[in-house]
Design a protein around this nucleic acid. Structure first.
Ligand code: ZN
Ligand code: ZN
Ligand code: ZN
Ligand code: ZN
Lengths: 442, 442
DNA sequence: TTAGGTTCAAGATGTTCA
DNA sequence: TGAACATCTTGAACCTAA
């Protein structure tokens, strides 16, 4: 329970703290009664929960009384609109309200004068009746403490709109650029070395052109909207400030956004040239809308931990003739650093179809060192770190009492060692289907 | 005691009621703890104020409330944010503030002009109201003495980021190297002389060859942020930064950092070869003792692929004939690494999830490609082929119905983190107990 | 330990559309 | 009008170098 979400007021009353509930009922809390909330320890922030992975969960426990049960979103779950009693979504203009009252207030807070109650200005407002009388609804909004001052001013709105549009444009541009890069990269992976470098040359060309355009926009000091915001971080950097136009040097701002429509592509000046134009390719931003990205990402995701691949994998095992040595050249990246060729380090492409294929090839390789995509390695490490399961088979599939993991492992190895053993289940499901017909591995 | 007779104010602070004493110290009812602001306390202090000395730390003994008496972080424990009255974490930009005011100031200090108070520029700022008016909050920040000049400039930030990145990489390299080294040494003990020297030659080779290929994405503004969205659907997760570049005259900052922002030399580029990779800041969390360091090294040795299942699996998988080249390579994976005798380190069970150290480091790295010894990779691949156990916990150790493997994995990851994760619950159960006597992880 | 910065997801505000 | 959505703001938890 959240005190502030529920109680209207809080003040001293004798040696207690008195809380006033919305219905004007009173709760007195004595000094020694404050400690009823046990699980709340995360609230004071002194401790972080022991569980959960690093990125697992950041809780905003700041203002919540755990009501004993779940961790989160109870907070909203129990809320009621202070205006109409409908289900609330959270604070809106200083008061916990429902979606509709929020919108209503924003639209009408400044129109009070124009309203008129068809009845006696005493309309009861609930989730049904709220529609019947604007006047009384608005009155109630104010009476429960909603603040019209918190509604964005017209100016602010306009400015924000501009900025949002800018951001949007920029993002789209980035996406497109990304797509191009990715396309190039993908291409490269299927090309010979020379061709690959050709592609990368193209990429550079693209960048040059890109920068050319930007050249025009390179405005000196545009009130902090410098090109540092070019990249995604911008979306949260711009907005860090409030949108009160009147304080802004609107001239320069307008000048920016007001650039000739034909030049839209280059409103913002990115300093692309300072860094090699390699994309976040391997790790694909989830926000990326472009479909092209998806393919590789999915493959990777699916491939890396091909634990359930069992059957199908085997079929993919490379015949002895295949690639005793892995290609030295890194077919993946466009321009930036590659493994030194002189080292003769095999380069493992991301599209690992199956563990066993790789294993086979690795076995045959003379190389001592292998270069793999980071995320692949991480995945492997993760899996490797699992504690072993000792559950025994109960279903009869394996000998009674035998360790399931062991049995499965044996099966796998047997399959892998000899060639294609009888793949009993789902011959062509799993990764293979995702990877398409051709052998992905090179 | 009559609360209102003593305290000046009372308001909600999250899920507690906060009481403000005449000396501006705070009593957080929920936590039964006092929080003092030393700097202000001298005002009404009846005791030896010391005139707001930085570490003055004087406590009120006058009330019936216990002053907690906890040993740690006394300094911080007694502080109150000078801006909003919330619990402070320490000095930030020259003033004792809370976490949020710190962040707020960093984000907005250079955006003052763009803000506007929706009221009369006299908004009271407390821990609840602080959100309501940016303008007044920022004004208060300044008025209590926060210095925007202390915010890192864009340049400085970039530089720092680079440095951190480098360090991280180096650490990972060291870890990796250490693992191999250990494994090699250990192995040598069982080899003939020739073989041993061969191994060490290999090690040298590795040192030369080991090579992390960094595919940095194009990040025009050097923010280094872009691909961080990979892991998480980027709705709003773009990193934050402020738009104050134009304000940040490098000079003012230079004084502070003591190094010209553009001076790349400042970048730390430790050479692995010249220095033993065990500087506290490098390999191991700062708080670790030498012994711990040693232990960690051991773990790493065991780390790479020590796995319970390994034994049986390997024998099946790698018939002698198929590994002609392997003898050369340090056979890390096969034999469970044992402690180096010379170090007198207790035997480390192979369950030690030292993989997670690597995993952690990998996770933080920007590198896209990693080069590892072949046999390590092979071992990983082999282990990866195990089917995952889906057994759910029945004993109550984990949440009902949760996948044991997953839970354990999570635990391990948590423990392996570089950030000494104080696992508050069950301090000596779980992993620690497996590690034997020595304080392995923290 | 301190005091900088970074990350991430909940919250809150505005917008769109039927 | 109000549900669904898009975007930005905040603050707690983290990470690092001194
Ligand atoms: Zn409502
Ligand atoms: Zn009415
Ligand atoms: Zn504060
Ligand atoms: Zn104000």
């Amino acid at each position: 329970m959240i005190l502030r979400d529920y109680f209207l007021n809080c003040f001293f009353q004798g040696n207690t703290v008195r809380l006033i509930a919305p219905d004007m009922s009173v709760f007195d809390v004595k000094d020694d009664q404050w400690f009823y909330d046990e699980e709340q320890s995360n609230g004071s922030g002194s401790e972080s929960g022991g569980g959960g992975g690093k990125k697992g969960g950041r809780k905003r426990a700041s203002t919540t009384f755990s009501d004993g049960g779940d961790k989160e979103s109870k907070r909203v779950a129990n809320k009621v609109c202070r205006v109409c009693g409908d289900k609330a979504i959270g604070y809106n203009f200083n008061v916990i309200t429902c979606e509709s009252c929020k919108a209503f207030f924003r639209r009408n807070a400044y129109n009070e004068k124009k309203m008129k109650c068809p009845f006696t200005e005493q309309c009861d407002i609930n989730s049904v009746s709220r529609r019947y009388c604007q006047k009384c609804r608005l009155t109630k909004c104010f009476s429960v403490g909603m603040k019209k001052e918190w509604i964005m001013s017209e100016e602010a709105r306009v400015e924000k709109k501009q900025r949002v549009e800018e951001n949007r444009e920029r993002r789209m541009r980035d996406t497109m650029k990304q797509a191009i890069e990715d396309a190039t990269m993908e291409d490269d992976s299927e090309k010979s070395y020379d061709e690959a470098s050709e592609s990368s040359r193209q990429m550079e060309e693209f960048n040059e052109q890109y920068n050319m355009v930007n050249y025009y926009k390179d405005e000196p000091s545009d009130m902090g909207y410098s090109n540092q915001n070019y990249d995604y971080p911008a979306s949260s950097s711009y907005p860090e400030l409030m949108d009160h136009k009147d304080y802004c040097v609107s001239t320069s701002f307008v000048a920016r956004t007001g650039a000739p429509p034909s030049n839209k592509v280059a409103v913002i000046a990115p300093t692309v040239e300072t860094k090699p134009p390699l994309s976040p390719s391997a790790l694909i931003p989830a926000s990326m809308s472009a479909a092209q990205v998806a393919v590789q990402a999915q493959q990777l995701a699916a491939a890396v931990v091909a634990q359930q691949l069992v059957g199908p994998v085997i079929q993919n095992v490379a015949p002895p003739s295949t690639v005793p040595m892995l290609p030295i050249a890194p077919p993946l990246a466009v321009a930036p650093p590659r493994p030194k060729k002189s080292l003769g380090i095999p380069f493992i492409p991301k599209e690992i179809p199956a563990n066993y294929k790789l294993l086979n090839q690795l076995e045959k390789s003379n190389a001592q060192m292998v270069t793999v995509p980071k995320d692949v390695l991480m995945k492997l490490l993760q899996n490797n770190s699992r504690t072993s399961c000792t559950c025994t088979c109960q279903c009869g599939r394996y000998p009674p009492g035998s360790c399931i993991v062991d049995e499965v492992t044996k099966e796998l190895i047997k399959c892998g060692g000899s060639s294609i053993a009888t793949v009993k289940d789902e011959p062509e499901t799993g990764l293979n289907s995702k990877f398409g017909p051709g052998p992905v591995f090179r």
